[in-house]
Design a protein around this nucleic acid. Structure first.
Lengths: 109, 109
DNA sequence: TGAGCTACTTGGTGTTGCTAGATACCGGTA
DNA sequence: TACCGGTATCTAGCAACACCAAGTAGCTCA
């Protein structure tokens, strides 16, 4: 994929990461690896870290530093109540957009 | 809707507009009005015009100036061959993203 | 004359993801 | 010991995109 997916990710990537965290806590490196595995081959490492810092500042996630056997300590993020609320909103917005797009695709306006 | 949809529109709005044009030619004012009608209440007028200029510069659309009875001349845009190709790509990217998101929503990873 | 709708343009702002490089901890190997 | 690769995070600078605000311009009708 190229630039197209990059632009489309703006705004959705955040929801994607929060959705991942809604399943269970995770840390940056892990999230990046998982996304790559899912086909998001272009997602830059730095992007995820920056995003995590952002959602933390906004109070959507809680953080815990956990030592790793294989390297420096991990920052494990978990979705808190506010984050879950925000994720709800995200899914609503996404649904709205997806419905409009789907309608456009089949039959046009 | 609020800021969330604004961010999510980045990258997709372009596809939306091209999809509209794939049905039949249209001009900026008309497109804006139609989008508002479809629930995209936050879309700014200027945004559509800027987007149209962009896709024109990229050679995805052809333009024709058509006099209007009700105001200044309209710039009517129509999707050309290159634009159709690009729209194809857009739908592929969109499908990829939508599938990942849908999977995330139900059942998580 | 002026209000209101139609129609397009432009300059500045904020958010977001990418690039590229740096830092740091650890195990294995030459 | 010295170095390399994998793990793990952070940062500064950049480009793209949508928004905001204001302006220009043509037309109709009171």
């Amino acid at each position: 994929m190229g630039k197209q997916v990059t632009e489309m990710l703006k705004g959705t990537l955040e929801g994607v990461v929060l959705a991942i965290l809604s399943d269970r806590p995770a840390y940056g490196y892990e999230i990046t690896a998982w996304l790559r595995d899912q086909g998001f081959t272009d997602i830059a490492e730095g992007t995820i870290y920056a995003l995590l810092v952002r959602v933390e500042r906004r109070g959507l996630v809680d953080v815990e530093k956990v030592p790793s056997e294989k390297g420096p300590p991990r920052k494990v993020y978990s979705l808190n109540a506010q984050g879950r609320e925000y994720l709800e909103e995200f899914w609503k917005t996404w649904t709205f957009l997806a419905e409009r797009l789907e309608q456009l695709r089949k039959g046009g306006r």
